[in-house]
Design a protein around this nucleic acid. Structure first.
Lengths: 127, 127
DNA sequence: TTTATACGGTCTAAAATGTAGACCTTTAGA
DNA sequence: TCTAAAGGTCTACATTTTAGACCGTATAAA
């Protein structure tokens, strides 16, 4: 019995579609990157500036995953200094549609959540 | 100039509603817990069994955050052994509506993503 | 001529976060 | 008497994230 190949492992590891997809997308940075790319193509450093507080390593790593999963494409122009452009694929765009609903929800209910948080705090500190 | 209180910090720290909400919800477990509670109230250990591979500590911690943000309520019945029930609030339910869209999207596109992943792998290993 | 800057990363060490599993309290049942 | 169950907390270890130095090349400024 031979060991599984890396790709076979990846396929078998996650039997639940929702977990498989959301484990990747729900990781603090993926979503922000996809949103940043929604208006159009951006280069690596432009993405860094756009997002603001992501480290190079995480941006690099997350972009690789998003490319791997087919959400974005990476185009390297062999110039000096090198130019690398990241663009949403149709899959990436289609993902943002249901995402917009979530973003709208967040916008609408943000105040409610902040209020709940404050209520909880005061309830804990002076019981 | 006095330091900020904890609650003031929480309010000021996150100026972006979407990040604020999704940083909490997009953390590997929150979503799974909310989905598990969608059909109805569950007790702590029932949640553990339902989710399967979450640690007690993370379940406990995440439930606390969800309660803090007003997504769920925690009801303790002072029996022995104690009984604790977790239930979605209206806010929690309303959140699941846009979430369903995302889950549906994940379901629909899961195969595409897995395929993209495999293609990427083979492209990398034999260039 | 030397120096600085920009590009798109990688590498390393340290900090933050997550995990598994022992432990706690009280009561009922074997 | 010993075990199990409830809903957690605590500790030690493992994994993940971060900050920041570094890399190679080329153009622009001093």
């Amino acid at each position: 019995m031979t060991a599984l190949t890396a790709s076979e492992e990846i396929v078998l590891e996650q039997p639940c579609p929702i977990r498989d997809v959301l484990d990747r997308i729900g990781d603090q940075w993926s979503l922000l990157i996809l949103e940043a790319l929604a208006p159009g193509t951006l280069r690596f450093n432009a993405l860094m500036r756009e997002i603001g507080d992501i480290s190079k390593q995480m941006l690099s790593r997350t972009l690789k995953q998003l490319e791997q999963d087919g959400f974005i494409t990476r185009t390297l122009y062999p110039e000096v200094p090198p130019r690398v452009e990241y663009t949403l694929t149709p899959l990436g765009h289609s993902f943002l549609e249901p995402m917009q609903q979530l973003v709208a929800w967040a916008d609408t209910h943000h105040r409610t959540i902040v209020a709940a948080r404050l209520r909880y705090q005061t309830a804990q500190t002076k019981p």
